[in-house]
């Protein structure tokens, strides 16, 4: 994979550009309108014009699909997936990296998508729960979760499954205790832990390719 060129200069928002936009606003031409109204209207329009310049370009590959996007730097990978790409399988459970519901794979590694800005993943490959199955064929971990009833409400499930797949790939599914420790970053408030561990053990012991 070739890395994109470095972003030495801000491609997006910068104060001088915004100030320039403000000063050159079209509305300043409306000199016959009383001062305060112009001022208010100017501010509003300026903000809207300036906002368009606050986005930066971003190239990402999500579940094998290449995306060319324009995002605010403050957009997290999680919000990008859920709100911009309509990949709502990745869940928001806390937004602070404290629950694991937002777990996705970035270049094969499990991470909390809520705690990183999308722009920091320029050029990377993201896999979400929607990209795990091959067409209609569920991934063995998904099959095992269904079989062992590794969920109840289903909200933490995508994160649990993404984490479980990584847990096995990393070699951290050697024992029940090891699975429990290495899955502790994924909270299930319904408490389906016993069944989740059983599902992971089955996949691990079954020797299927994960």
């Amino acid at each position: 994979m070739s890395l994109p060129p470095d972003l030495e200069q801000p491609a997006g928002h910068d104060e001088s550009r915004r100030t320039f936009l403000k000063q050159s606003s079209l509305l300043t031409a409306l000199t016959f309108v009383p001062g305060p109204v112009v001022q208010a209207a100017t501010n509003e329009l300026d903000e809207k014009v300036a906002a368009a310049f606050e986005k930066v370009p971003l190239k990402l590959e999500v579940n094998g699909v290449k995306h060319k996007l324009s995002v605010e730097p403050r957009t997290t990978l999680l919000d990008l997936l859920r709100e911009n790409l309509n990949l709502t399988g990745t869940k928001k459970g806390c937004d602070y990296g404290q629950c694991g519901a937002c777990t996705v794979h970035v270049d094969g590694q499990r991470v909390n998508s809520c705690l990183s800005f999308a722009v920091m993943h320029e050029g990377k490959k993201i896999t979400t729960i929607e990209g795990l199955a091959e067409g209609d064929k569920l991934h063995p971990m998904q099959e095992a979760f269904v079989k062992h009833d590794g969920f109840q409400c289903g909200y933490c499930t995508p994160g649990q499954i993404m984490s479980a797949v990584a847990c096995v790939r990393e070699g951290h599914a050697g024992s029940e205790a090891e699975i429990r420790e290495y899955m502790s970053g994924n909270i299930c408030r319904c408490g389906a832990y016993s069944n989740i561990v059983a599902a992971i053990q089955e996949v691990k012991n079954g020797g299927q390719k994960v």
Partner: peptide, 11 residues
Amino acid sequence: GHLKVTGAAKY
């Protein structure tokens, strides 16, 4: 179950 493990269940 299928909807929940594939991320297709909508909340």
